[in-house]
Write a protein that binds this DNA or RNA. Structure first.
Lengths: 219, 219
DNA sequence: GAGCAACTAGGTAGAAATACCTGATTTTAA
DNA sequence: TTAAAATCAGGTATTTCTACCTAGTTGCTC
């Protein structure tokens, strides 16, 4: 452990940070890196959403680093719950993949910032400080410095309806089943699927699903 | 940075370790954690397979921590290449998911040890030391201590042929295309698919692919 | 050598998906 | 307000997939 006995700051002045991330190595790594930061106070780290909700009740934090894909209760589920309890909490969402639609989805849920796990650690640090001080963090800023994520930022530009259908396809539903779910004709669903296939440059349902899951949608 | 000026060891006595992992936060985290270990000497860390092959030529290591899913050249591809160059190298493979078939696949490729990213960091440390000293590491040992990964160790018991077909399905191939690839009848492929659907409790190609990708096969 | 699992492959029927086409209404943005 | 985009939906033909069935060959083990 790294002791910082010569630090004059007290915990009140430091940004209180918590981490919810199921990959233990990654979590412990972030913990180790954050412990070296003098202006951050790592309050707790947990491996799933249920644990997160329990801990955050006893230990208030300013910034939460949240993984979308966790067991028991995933980030997508617990994000709105926590935000309702603590509306001023800033949430930095981590996800294995980065894409326009998932970014929009996460921001709609109320996240303050969305970062791919491919990000450099310095980007995560910048983001924590920025969301705490300014209330937002623009990934654009970091892009000017680090051009590593270029290939990940594809813009598929799915329409809301297409995203809905994409999601249901990833739940193993047929066009007919999707049509019944959405109260539309199965021919309409097929039309949407054709447009999704054009946008994803695939030629089958399998291709669509492979595209979506590999990009980290709906997991 | 943590300086260890009072360490009496020289680098020759320490286990030389390298990391190939594209998720920078995770990589930097492992680096930070490994730097605290006195008996390890972290030689280099890289973000893709091509970089790995370049670096390892100039900097010999004892143990390589390798991520399966990397850009440019993935772990699956560069593992055999590197092992041919350095047959005595011990390789600890990290992967987002853990399952019996992918374990067998990785060991067949020549990896010394396979760990899920969910592992505790101490498991990774144990594994590094164990593969270096004993030439193997049994995940069973760590399981007795940590029972966290129980739900991930499902045994689907796919046959080798079924795994081949599973892989090709995840490459967006139709039964006909798979049949041509494997020089068998498309009816045979369909038969295998039916058996895969039984084992995965799904009823369509989409279901098979969703199952495979969510479990972390072929990524 | 009997039993078993794995791999092979065919028949038939029906369901689903795909590839083209067409055109309607509604919503959004310039 | 005009144009563009999104949503809806039908026709027709072909391909692919799924669900049943049967059954031969190989290789392994008890």
């Amino acid at each position: 452990m790294v002791l910082k006995g010569n630090s004059m700051r007290n915990n009140e002045e430091r940004i209180r940070v918590a981490i919810a991330e199921d990959h233990q190595i990654l979590r412990q790594g972030i913990v180790a890196l954050l412990e070296d930061e003098e202006n951050l106070n790592l309050v707790f780290d947990v491996g799933d959403g249920l644990e997160l909700i329990e801990k955050i009740k006893e230990n208030p934090v300013d910034v939460l680093i949240l993984d979308l894909n966790m067991p028991k209760m995933d980030g997508e589920t617990c994000l709105p719950i926590i935000l309702k309890l603590y509306p001023n909490l800033k949430i930095v969402v981590l996800s294995a993949y980065f894409s326009e639609p998932i970014l929009n989805f996460v921001l709609e849920l109320g996240a303050t910032c969305f970062l791919p796990k491919l990000s450099d650690f310095s980007v995560l640090l910048d983001a924590i400080v920025s969301v705490h001080q300014k209330g937002f963090y623009s990934i654009e800023e970091s892009k000017k410095e680090k051009r590593l994520n270029l290939e990940l930022e594809m813009k598929e530009n799915f329409t809301p309806r297409e995203l809905e259908i994409l999601k249901l396809l990833c739940e193993e539903k047929t066009s007919k089943e999707i049509a019944e779910d959405l109260f539309i004709s199965h021919r309409t669903v097929e039309g949407h699927k054709l447009r999704i296939m054009e946008k994803t440059k695939t030629t089958s349902t399998s291709g669509i699903i492979i595209f979506a899951l590999r990009k980290g949608y709906f997991r």
